[in-house]
């Protein structure tokens, strides 16, 4: 059982820029009932206002906002980019993987961040995610 739903995954997508990637990652949360459209906008606004703080590791962006900006349930989406995209981060660009998270409750976003950090911080798992063929393979790697 994973918090990652099949419809929240898009593999080898071609996108032009960071905002498009954040928007799609948010739309996937909306489609799977994890968040409202306001949440997507909050993530985009955060990126535009503060910059590439969401690129927390080399090649990895984790768009997120506060639960009170429109999350409905805990979950996350996953986009693997066909062509890496620069987000404007000096050290960690370009981004290859975009995982938007939604958490509920005061600290729900922190719990989700920690869960996703456990998976993506594991180099072996990260490599497997970058090479997984389909959702079935992914769901065996991402067991949160």
């Amino acid at each position: 059982m994973t918090l990652l739903k099949e419809k929240a995954v898009k593999l080898d997508v071609e996108l032009d820029n960071a905002v498009e990637a954040i928007r799609l990652s948010g739309e996937l949360l909306v489609e799977t009932g994890c968040a409202t459209e306001e949440y997507t906008q909050a993530m985009i606004d955060g990126y535009k206002r503060v910059g590439p703080y969401i690129v927390i590791a080399p090649g990895i962006a984790i768009p997120h906002s506060r639960p009170d900006n429109g999350t409905l349930q805990s979950g996350f989406s996953l986009i693997r980019l066909k062509q890496p995209i620069p987000f404007g981060h000096e050290k960690n660009d370009p981004v290859k993987l975009v995982c938007a998270i939604s958490g509920v409750g005061d600290n729900g976003h922190i719990e989700m961040l920690q869960k996703i950090a456990m998976v993506l911080g594991d180099k072996d798992k990260f490599n497997k995610i970058m090479h997984a063929k389909d959702y079935d393979e992914l769901s065996k790697i991402i067991t949160i």
Binding site: V50, I54, N107, L113, Q114
Partner: peptide, 14 residues
């Protein structure tokens, strides 16, 4: 310290 002060900075502190 992180961009927004509620996500990655909290994770970092923990």
């Amino acid at each position: 310290v992180c961009g927004m002060g509620f996500g990655t900075s909290l994770m970092l502190l923990m």
